[in-house]
Every structure is written in structure tokens, then in C-alpha cells.
């Protein structure tokens, strides 16, 4: 026995949420060949299948690419600070891929160890994540290599499985998800399933064990020299969370803003003295991969990667976490004779 909803009822539900003033985001065609997670204006804009992975991730609905931390006003020698606008709106993200939903509990660690980031936390509380299990994958997908899969439930409040005949099986994962879908589904004999995900691209256990001692490995240079430092990997990544804090305004006032940043940019770690601890692109690539597979898991338990493949998919030289790790595993295994 299962709970199901028809595509039509699901669209009506989305329409109802929008009408009730709830902000709803989902995969939307933004160009002929491009799908992005974006705020929805109409229920029919939401794609409920037919895409592999949007070009962005759902992190921006929790950790926006640009966000005001507070406002400042300058009046002579006096300064007045004002909190940002209230974050009270209820939000729903629908059609998330499992690899995007899984990023949220992973990001919870960094935004809450010791100091708690109220902006991120408020949005996490306000947002319900409805995930669509994957029936297809492309060459870049590697969720199975990091312990996830095409129907991994981590980070989701509700899971949707595409069924034949424009139906979806609905599995509520959390109470929040249960409340959202209560009374909206009907009982059925149909159950959804997904084909196996992509074949494993690297051995996570081996890499986790090995990577910590490979800081000086030549593989970082060999595998990443072609990187052009555009930062697309970090911007499209569901788990990359580095940010900058800058003032935007004029002599009378403005905002202090938190903007996305990327460890691939040369200025990211540049000291005022001119010294730069990560002065070359391979050093910066090593930082990105080691942050995800050594530093972060050593601290918080989770690898900082969900295998979405966006880093490679959107890289103009086809260089991403999985291509680097594949090269690293090959090189390190061959070296240990």
C-alpha cells in the first residue's frame, strides 16, 4: 500500500500554496537547454520530471548568493544599525534532487558549530523540502560514490517517485512533510521505485583513509593544472558555503552583505602583506577537494559532497571533484606497491 498523488493534483497543490502566499521554488526551464531551481510564479512553470539536475542547487534558498546582514545609516559621526527585513515567510522547495536535499543537513554543521547563523537557521525552519527521486542520471552524477543514491531520503521532508500514468508516489519522511501532504494523497497499490544510480566512480573509504596524508601528492598539480579559476564549481555546488562580507552603499548608508565566494579565486586567501598561502591554482583545487573529503568530515563526520556532479557538469574543462578523486585514487593506489 502506498500514498499517491496525480500530476494534476500536485500542480493544483502548488497553485494552492502560491495562492496562500507561500513562496515555492522548483525546477524551472530558464532557457531552451537550461533548467534551474527558481521561485515559481505559476504551478505550470514547475518541471515534475524530465530533467537530470538543475544547473544550480537548492542551497540558495537557505544561503542566498547575496544577503543583507544589516543596514547602516551614517549621520555625521553617528551610525545607526538596523536589522534586515523579517524572515517570516513559509517556503517550500519542490522537485529537489536527493543530492541537493542531502546537502542541507550537511551544511547544518558549519552554520551551527559554536556560533549559530540565524539567517540560515531561520530559513531551514521555514522551508519544507519535497524531493523527486531520480529515474535517470548522466555521466557526471556520482551520488552512489558518496553513500547516497537516486532515492536517498536525507534532508528531504517528502519523497516523490514518478509512477506511470502521470502519478507520483508520496512518501513523507518528516512530520513537516507529513503536515504538508496530509489529506492530499490517496491510497494505492502502486509503489514507486528507481533504477540503480550511477556506477561508483571512486572508493570513498579508501580515499577518506588516504587523503589526509596526501597533501604533498603530485596528483593535485597533475589533475588540476587545467583549472581556469572561474569558480563555477563552487557556485553550482550544493555544499560549497564560502562567503565574503562586504559593504555596499554610499556615504549616507548601505548594507553589510554576505556574498558567495569561492576558494578557487586567487584573492580568496591573499594577505594584506601580499603573502598568499594558496598562490597557485593546484593549491586552491587541493583545498577544495581536501576541504570536502578530509577537513570537513574530520570535523563534522559528513563528507562535504553529495555527488550531484554539478562541478564537473558546468566546468569548461570538465574538472570536478569526481575527476580529481578518480585521478587521485588511481595515482595513489599505483604508488603504494
Amino acid at each position: 500500500m502506498s500514498e499517491v498523488i496525480s500530476a494534476r493534483a500536485l500542480r493544483e497543490l502548488i497553485g494552492g500554496w502560491l495562492k496562500a502566499g507561500i513562496r515555492v521554488a522548483g525546477p524551472r526551464r530558464v532557457a531552451t537547454d537550461q533548467v534551474a531551481y527558481a521561485w515559481l510564479d505559476r504551478p505550470e512553470d514547475c518541471l515534475l520530471g524530465g530533467y537530470i539536475h538543475p544547473h544550480n542547487s537548492i542551497k540558495e534558498f537557505f544561503f542566498p548568493r547575496h544577503e543583507s546582514l544589516y543596514e547602516y545609516r551614517i549621520e555625521g559621526k553617528k551610525i545607526a544599525l538596523k536589522n534586515p527585513e523579517p524572515l517570516a515567510d513559509e517556503r517550500i522547495v519542490i522537485g529537489a534532487r536527493p543530492c541537493d536535499a542531502a546537502a542541507m543537513p550537511i551544511l547544518d554543521h558549519v552554520f551551527n558549530w559554536d556560533f549559530k547563523d540565524p539567517f540560515y537557521n531561520r530559513r531551514r525552519e521555514q522551508t519544507t523540502v519535497v524531493t523527486l527521486a531520480c529515474r535517470e542520471h548522466d555521466h557526471e552524477c556520482f551520488c552512489t560514490s558518496v553513500g547516497l543514491g537516486p532515492d536517498a531520503e536525507r534532508g528531504s521532508d517528502v519523497m516523490l517517485y514518478e509512477l506511470d500514468g502521470d502519478m507520483y508516489e508520496v512518501r513523507c519522511v518528516t512530520d513537516k512533510g507529513g503536515n504538508l501532504m496530509a489529506g492530499r494523497t490517496e491510497t494505492s497499490q502502486l509503489t514507486g521505485s528507481v533504477p540503480p544510480g550511477p556506477a561508483k566512480k571512486f572508493d570513498l573509504a579508501y580515499l577518506r583513509e588516504t587523503i589526509g596524508s596526501k597533501f604533498e601528492s603530485p596528483v593535485w598539480t597533475e589533475a588540476t593544472l587545467r583549472c581556469m579559476a572561474c569558480g563555477a564549481c563552487a557556485y553550482t555546488c550544493p555544499t560549497c558555503h564560502c562567503f565574503d562580507i562586504v559593504d555596499e552603499g554610499n556615504a549616507r548608508g548601505g548594507i553589510r552583505a554576505k556574498n558567495w565566494d569561492a576558494c578557487q579565486f586567487p584573492m580568496f586567501t591573499l594577505h594584506a602583506s601580499g603573502h598568499n598561502p594558496r598562490n597557485t591554482q593546484p593549491q586552491r583545487q587541493r583545498q577544495r577537494v581536501m576541504h570536502k573529503f578530509s577537513i570537513y568530515p574530520d570535523k563534522f563526520g559528513d563528507v562535504l559532497c553529495t555527488g550531484c556532479g554539478n562541478c564537473t557538469r558546468h566546468c569548461s574543462v570538465h574538472l570536478g571533484v569526481q575527476t580529481v578523486l578518480e585521478a587521485a585514487e588511481k595515482s595513489w593506489r599505483n604508488a603504494t606497491v
Binding site: 564560502c242 562567503f243 565574503d244 562580507i245 583545498q287 577537513i295 574530520d298
Partner: peptide, 18 residues
């Protein structure tokens, strides 16, 4: 004295290894 932005362990740039 690594470059920092947040000072509270989030912005991701001051780390030296782990």
C-alpha cells in the same frame, strides 16, 4: 594571521589544513 571574513568558523578561508 590568515585572511578571514567571518571570524566565526563559517566563511571557509582561514583554514590551514584541518
Amino acid at each position: 594571521e590568515n585572511r578571514m571574513k567571518c571570524g566565526v568558523g563559517k566563511c571557509g578561508r582561514c583554514n590551514s589544513g584541518p
